[in-house]
Design a protein around this nucleic acid. Sequence first.
DNA 1: ACGAAAACCGATAAGCAATCGGTTTTATAA
DNA 2: TTATAAAACCGATTGCTTATCGGTTTTCGT
Lengths: 132, 132
Amino acid sequence: MFLGELEKQVLQYLWSSPNVDAKQVHAALAKQRDSSPNTVQSALERLFKKGLLSREKQGHAYLYRAKIKREELIAKLIDSVASDFISQGENSLVAAFSSVSSDMDEGQLDQLEKLIEIQRSQLKQSKSNADK
Amino acid sequence: MFLGELEKQVLQYLWSSPNVDAKQVHAALAKQRDSSPNTVQSALERLFKKGLLSREKQGHAYLYRAKIKREELIAKLIDSVASDFISQGENSLVAAFSSVSSDMDEGQLDQLEKLIEIQRSQLKQSKSNADK
DNA sequence: ACGAAAACCGATAAGCAATCGGTTTTATAA
DNA sequence: TTATAAAACCGATTGCTTATCGGTTTTCGT
């Protein structure tokens, strides 16, 4: 999955302001880039076709929302670039991590361990919910 | 940074067999893809220009080697896709992992924690070396 | 210095994002 | 209900990048 520059900016904006129409997106992006309203429209349509946005008509215009959370998208992107180099069987997410970890210092490793703990407790949580 | 399909295959092969010339790369890739020798040449040149390969003349031909380890490349790719969505100040690698961790199960989290330990001991190692 | 081998150049095709003008569709207000 | 303004949609164009190779130039060894 590849995203162009404008598409990324659109997504960023939609995460911060969900349910906006093309006009509003264009207005918001005016500070960063000088594209015509139609160009922004096209990017929204492209993202919609790619399944990254949902939309709902409101009067004349569609209101767009990101269909995926920022973190989920990043995870997907990571998986897509990493899995090209990771063979079947290897777990690509863990393997990807082992690729990255060599650039980390102690503080970062600490943070990471905290994240793991958080993740563990969330798993416990959803497990007990599943058990009713 | 974006790599095409042939470029990825070339890199993969060079990791498994460093110091080979274009002819050998072409021969090796014949099983996976039906490209002319010149096409493979071009891919090698492109990768060389991108700084991903080094080479050294041996007789008529250059022998190519990957300039970067597989893990390092994956780490770079991850950083490049993730940093687009991560603001200054956030540490993008750790943030990227927080994005990925929600897709992980307990076993993966365990593996991950082991990797962190390994990484920690390597840091200690290089630290004591630095202290002479 | 000759000839074969390999590198390099240039042209072409294909795919995709960005661009935006122009046309069609559509929601509302008269 | 129909006119009209707003927005969606379509199509063409540009620019960038990989893949593709044929053909030419360079280069090394004999």
